[in-house]
Design a protein around this nucleic acid. Structure first.
Length: 293
DNA sequence: CATTTCACCTGGTGGC
DNA sequence: TGCCACCAGGTGAAAT
């Protein structure tokens, strides 16, 4: 479910709520699917760590963890301060959360009712909990000890930062549909089904067009449309189509701004032509046959 | 190598 | 009310 704007919203929310807090205890459920690192190793690695910062990389939420016990007087991690002289400031480990289709990462009171399909609960020194909930179990949790493993960086360029030249180069010589290319996380990190459809509508490009045959002008329109759509969605807290919520359990509002996604048969907001739905790259794909060429 | 298809899961919805 | 088919924000392995 969650694409770049939803993951960004959640990461910011979690960051603002738990930064500087200490993981007192970690509990993991019995299912093996959600864990890239065995649950016992995750619990052992996480307990006692300070949550220094939480940010997004592609569709991944990365929790930067410092080593143990120590934190500054105001509870902030002093990132960017004197890194070598303050114990526990340099990230020593990472907890990487991928939400799959239905994953949630929530900051709750420790006595809040435990939702069904809760697979991880980190109790924090502040008395709250960081919980991972995922009914479909497509999400993944990974622990990295940075003394042994390199820091996590999502493959693929960030669609908010990429420049025109580099963007165009991603698609050069590719025969596959532009929508399939947008969904390829190795090319661009963070674009999923909603924002692929919405950005192609905004750029006026049919999703089935061969990626390598788009003109320079079309590619530039697409790059800007993608950035504008993603930034707008972030400002509105993401899209809540069915069950997406942020770190506080609040819904986003960008679903109210969707022009094509899940609007099959409804009139195009620009020309009134009914929105068409086709299957492309195995995904429901929505577009306007008149506005998108 | 590039590209496509499918399996992995649970839950909600709409038709009969 | 129940049953069933179909659909859903993602991804990576297997097949082509």
């Amino acid at each position: 479910m969650p694409e770049l704007p939803e993951v960004e919203t959640i990461a910011r929310g979690v960051h603002n709520r738990v930064r500087g807090d200490r993981i007192a205890q970690a509990w993991f459920g019995r299912y093996s699917e959600p864990f890239k690192t065995p649950p016992a190793l995750q619990a052992k690695g996480l307990e006692g760590r300070i949550l220094q910062a939480v940010h997004r990389s592609g569709k991944h939420i990365v929790c930067e963890l410092g080593c143990c016990e120590r934190q500054s007087a105001d509870g902030s991690p002093e990132v960017g301060g004197n890194r070598t002289s303050v114990q526990g400031v340099e990230p020593r480990a990472q907890w990487i959360v991928h939400l799959g289709m239905t994953g949630r990462l929530l900051v709750t009171a420790s006595d809040a009712p435990v939702a069904a399909h809760t697979h991880a609960r980190l109790s924090l020194a502040s008395g709250r909990e960081l919980r991972f909930v995922d009914p479909r179990r497509f999400g993944r949790l990974e622990f990295r000890d940075l003394l042994r493993t390199p820091a996590f960086i999502a493959p693929g360029a960030d669609p908010l930062l990429i420049e025109g030249r580099e963007f165009a180069a991603l698609f050069r010589g590719r025969k596959l549909a532009i929508k399939a290319a947008l969904l390829n996380q190795g090319l661009l990190a963070g674009v999923g089904n909603i924002y692929a459809d919405e950005s192609l509508f905004r750029a006026g490009i049919r999703p089935g067009r061969s990626a390598g045959r788009l003109t320079k002008a079309e590619l530039e329109r697409l790059r800007q449309a993608l950035r504008e759509v993603l930034e707008h969605a972030i400002r509105l807290g993401g899209s809540s189509v069915s069950d997406y919520v942020d770190a506080d359990g609040a819904r986003g509002f960008f679903q109210l701004e969707h022009c094509v996604y899940m609007r099959t048969g409804q009139p195009c907001l620009s020309c009134r032509t009914p929105i068409r739905r086709i299957l492309l790259a195995g995904r429901g794909t929505h577009y306007c046959t008149k506005c998108q060429r």
